[in-house]
Design a protein around this nucleic acid. Sequence first.
DNA 1: ATTTAGCACTCCCTTTGCGAGAGTGCCAGT
DNA 2: ACTGGCACTCTCGCAAAGGGAGTGCTAAAT
Lengths: 345, 345
Amino acid sequence: MPTLTERQKTLLMLIIRDYIDSAQPVGSKRLAEHYHINLSSATIRNEMAALTEMGYLRQPHTSAGRVPTEEGYRYFVSEMMHSAELPETVQHTISHQFYQSRPELDQWMTLAASVLANQSQGVSVVAAPHVETTKFKHVELISTQGRQVLMVLVMLGGEVSQQILTLAEPVAQERLSGTATRLNGLLTGQTAQAISTLTARPDPLDQDILLLVLQDMRRLVEKASGEIYTDGLTNVLSEPEFSESDEARRALKIFEEPASLQDLLTKTTSNSNVGALQVLIGGEGEYDDLRQCSLVIARYGVPGMATGALGVLGPMRMSYSRTIPTVRFVAGLLSDLVSDNISGE
Amino acid sequence: MPTLTERQKTLLMLIIRDYIDSAQPVGSKRLAEHYHINLSSATIRNEMAALTEMGYLRQPHTSAGRVPTEEGYRYFVSEMMHSAELPETVQHTISHQFYQSRPELDQWMTLAASVLANQSQGVSVVAAPHVETTKFKHVELISTQGRQVLMVLVMLGGEVSQQILTLAEPVAQERLSGTATRLNGLLTGQTAQAISTLTARPDPLDQDILLLVLQDMRRLVEKASGEIYTDGLTNVLSEPEFSESDEARRALKIFEEPASLQDLLTKTTSNSNVGALQVLIGGEGEYDDLRQCSLVIARYGVPGMATGALGVLGPMRMSYSRTIPTVRFVAGLLSDLVSDNISGE
DNA sequence: ATTTAGCACTCCCTTTGCGAGAGTGCCAGT
DNA sequence: ACTGGCACTCTCGCAAAGGGAGTGCTAAAT
């Protein structure tokens, strides 16, 4: 990794910044005129040649301006990563929105997706927090009609799962309530692990429901992450990368398949800590469909208890200086909310 | 409305069909060669002139082929509306998917959106069924942590609403259960209307919860329709209408704002019966953003009890012969499911 | 009376050529 | 070490030219 002189650094930064909002290859003359650096275009040309040599810039064709390479973006991002903060007023506006919304996970996720999309002008994706070990807290059985029973399962930490069961034959609400009460006494505080070793129950209904509870708890833990929320798809459609090339558009397909999206999120953030951002530029050789895109992602939540992931996808040319602080800030905010929600346990 | 000769009719059908999958203006020669009608291109030209005169076709410019007008599409649609049926094998595949999915509304809606999108290659939208009058069936109060209480409200017909309440001070589960039991005895079978006239309760907790229940029931009835599910956005992005013109792309913005989408669905289907399809071609002068699009929609469910809406959006050039039967079939399927779900009441 | 063949015409779309403009690399001079 | 100058390259936009597809009309054939 060659080192850059101070001048090369500022030049590189300027070029990338210019390209990000013009989407046009940037040339030496333009640079010398628009930004008041006291350098002639010739000097800039020399430096550009050096930067090109080092792999930070490239020319679409001989005698066009320069365009940043993935390497260039990476350098740019690593330079401004730490310093960047969202303006305080914006921070306040966002927090305010969160604290005045209805205190429900669903609302928070939707809001987070919306904030991310609007601030970054990219496509946002938020995966709901997912518990790592689930402990039983309470089960409720409510007869809805005929043989159908609504089972509501509440976990320590507040996660709720509801499911409709269809029993072999109609059962009165009283009997259901009895079963629920017995199971509550028996299971409170237990993990799925512990429950699976319990011996058989005398009442056949108790036994059936116990199995269903267990199955549901397992499902909760096994699924890789929580539900997915996205927003801002249309933001990106007007960007030249997406409206012109088929290739970038293919990246959007990922957002229609929750499974592959979860995959991407968990895979790329699995080895990173809560609080640390990750910036994937140009698919990093791994994801073909993202070759023209960048992805800024972060984990949030309370490690060991419940964590989720969120991020923003945009063209490689996206406004990192806006996206990165936003992702960081929203991740922090959600971490606080999750932690508030858990602490009361 | 001028009447068409049999020959003009078949010609019009062919032209539209050809344009639908070529996206190119279709000329007389091409028509004479590709489809083995025993007519010379000259004759076809005469008929085309007549059809143009009548307003079913138009020429982008002198001496280009013909393109269907909105009027043309309307004729086309009204001609094939009734006869069109989905092939039996497809019908079976789809039903099969529904009956083997978990019997939950959420699953069904997602599946319906997916089937519609795949079959029609357009963007699908499904609004969950919404009850017209809600009667109370059961309330459950579960302390989750500290002052937070999960309220689960079940309506006659099986609709479920859950909400987290934050009380002024912590309350023991026993007391919550007592309140729930008392309210259940009191409210079963009542409408929101009736409940609002009830006199005050002695226990202050009972009173508070009663108000919250009432509020929630009102919210359920008031919201115009159920939650919105969509799928297939990317299907449409590769169509020339969307990848070339900004205008068509603007139509997709509607899909990012659940509110405006619900509006559209309810407004356009409010005066139509369950089971009747509606086909909006080119926004029908009403919706500017849909000028280049068509929309096939239907209501489903059980009138008077619970109904929802679903539909497919595509370019005006969409494959009606595939979309219309699919929408009709899926609407029927969902109607059956909803009706099964209600009948047991 | 209807259909068809032929013809002249119109308009789009692509190709071609050319000049302007922007940018580059390099060299020589400050 | 920087800058001015110069020759060179390549894109882009524009205009002109040619091909192609399609049309409308008329006159002949069925």
